[in-house]
Amino acid sequence: MKKDSLLKHSVLIILSLIWLSPIYLLVVNAFANVETWESNFDWSIKGWEPIANFQQAWTVADLAPGLKSNFFYGIMGAGLSVFFASLAAFSIVALNPKNKSLWFWVIYAVNLVPYQMLLLPLFESFASTGLYDTRWGLLLVYVAIAIPFAFFLSRNHMLSISKEVVEASQLDGASKIQTYFRIFLPLSWSALGAAFLFQFTWIWNDLVFGLTLTTSAEIRPLMSTIATLVGQYQNIKMPVVLCATLIASIPTAFLYIIGQRLFVAGLKAGS
């Protein structure tokens, strides 16, 4: 048993070091001294100026409006999409509607479309319906695109809820809504939580839909701003850019840390 555990830990530690080395590079180069920066990433620590670089990143990049917008898009987008998706998954799994297959594929279809295909027609329809450069317009797009994966995940997770539970609830006289809230939601907590985290991250990191469907600084999501920090005409030093991206990544990282309680290991015994 102990040898087993030792082997597991060794494998994990080696893999972790491999996985962390690019993060190490990111951090080391993000905090490198900007004055002596030689415009090449390096393995060694060339100065350690996190505060100065973060400050410069904040001033240079004007991240505040984007951050504000991102919280709106992320929380509302992920929240609504997971909610709608779980409702749909519940109905397909527990309520036995007609044409289950059809509804599954209609909802899942968004996941199969190459997203670039959506960009220009959406611009066109948004422009003509007045949704262009509006918060709710972009939010609708995020919700719609985030639903399929959340739906797929919830549905498959709900399939693993035994039929007896469903039937018992039915015979107990629970309405559909009650069954959803009292049985399916609690039992799917971890799957829905995972779906929320992933879709929040996707929405948070989106660049192309933000660029195509919005233009004002107040409506635009964060990555549209971050992406302007690099390029042919830009003179911003790389450590400052990397710090800006780190600032942009802190909320998502934080969300995963507090979301870890959702993924309580089920195999504690025998380790």
Binding site: L119, L120, F123, E124, A127, L207, L211, S224
Partner: peptide, 24 residues
């Protein structure tokens, strides 16, 4: 001014803006 960080996307968005009449 509005910055479009991706040149290719910029050009296509403007093509679309021209076609729909809603642009800068």
């Amino acid at each position: 001014p509005s910055t479009y960080a991706d040149t290719t996307l910029y050009q296509n968005t403007l093509n679309q803006a021209t076609k729909t009449g809603k642009g800068p």
